[in-house]
């Protein structure tokens, strides 16, 4: 990827590329509105990329959790997957990195709302939920739950770089990176910084209705444009089982065939679907370990299957 020249879409014909030594100085640059920026900006790839590579050397699988749509359960699914992976084998180390800067949810999902991050000689120490499960989120750095992070892109970019290069994870088997909705700064930053760090791939989360799928298709397009391997799609909230009569109903109707159909159309793997269980939402709200609280929930059986598919996909790579 480093050998590829980053050339803006609307660049003049013989643009040497914004990261080239010649940027802003070549003859083709004369008259380009960007000339001055190019000639003065530092050259070469961001030094952060190499730092991230070094820091994440000891992490076997690095997985992004993506979705174009908000509120489909990226954070909840990330939390469930990480707990399931950590519980499946106490020898395996799992960590969650939350790069949703404006709406961090991992502290709540993992039940560590009031914890704080400490600085040590080897970097930031993440918050440990269990012996083999750690979390890092901007939520730990805020003074009050009301604090809003009103940042434009470049500041978010800096924060993500720090999260990726300065957290002292130790040796990890799985690092799950939870992202905000969309295809913008956070995603581009993460992908850029992870470009040399051997990213395993992305898990895409969606709900069954077309309004969500519409945005999720854009996310799949994003993965293809940025050459991220798609490990598979998880459909969340696929059905609701009434706690009173045990009958199933579709709240978010799959009016265009749902996630499975979309996966067939776009030729991406389907990992499985998770039913909607109010008890899961409640247990996240109360910051409890839902594996102990809802051991009889259909969500857990479905999750087991997804974890099996996911680990198989990871091993393929």
């Amino acid at each position: 990827m480093a050998s590829e020249v980053a050339r803006p879409e609307n660049a003049p014909q013989h643009c040497p590329g914004t990261e080239s030594e010649e940027a802003g100085k070549a003859s083709a640059c004369a008259g380009c509105p960007n000339q001055q920026i190019c000639s003065t900006a530092p050259k070469g790839p961001d030094p952060g990329i190499a730092l991230v590579k070094d820091r994440l050397e000891a992490v076997q699988y690095k997985i992004l959790i993506l979705s174009g749509k908000g509120g489909v359960g990226k954070s909840t699914v990330t939390g469930l997957l990480s707990r399931a992976l950590a519980k499946s084998d106490s020898e395996k180390n799992v960590a969650v990195l939350d790069i949703d800067i404006c709406g961090p949810s991992q502290p709540r999902v993992m039940g560590v709302v009031d914890e704080q991050v400490h600085q040590s000689g080897s970097g930031w120490s993440p918050v440990y939920v269990d012996d083999n499960l750690s979390v890092m989120s901007i939520g730990f750095l805020l003074g009050s739950p009301d604090d809003a992070i009103i940042w434009r892109g470049p500041k978010k970019n800096g924060m993500i770089k720090q999260f990726l290069s300065e957290v002292d994870w130790g040796k990890l088997d799985y690092l799950l990176i939870d992202t905000p909705p969309g295809t913008s700064d956070e995603h581009l930053s993460a992908v850029t910084y992870l470009s040399q760090a051997n990213l395993t791939g992305a898990v895409i989360v969606t709900t069954p209705q077309e309004v969500a799928l519409l945005d999720v298709r854009k996310e799949i397009d994003f993965c293809r444009k940025t050459k991220i391997n798609i490990l598979g799609v998880v459909e969340n909230m696929s059905e609701f089982i009434c706690p009173c009569c045990q009958k199933s109903s579709q709240i978010f109707k799959a009016n265009t065939g749902g996630a499975e159909k979309m996966c067939q159309d776009l030729n991406v793997p389907f990992l499985g679907s998770l039913p909607l269980d109010p008890k899961v939402a409640k247990s996240c709200d109360n910051a409890n370990d839902c594996f102990e609280e809802i051991s009889d929930s259909p969500v857990l059986t479905a999750l087991e299957n997804i974890v099996k598919n996911l680990t198989a996909k990871c091993n393929e790579k």
Partner: peptide
């Protein structure tokens, strides 16, 4: 195309 992503940074 309704499936294509708008991959833009802030500015």
């Amino acid at each position: 195309n309704r499936n294509s992503a708008v991959v833009w940074r802030g500015p």
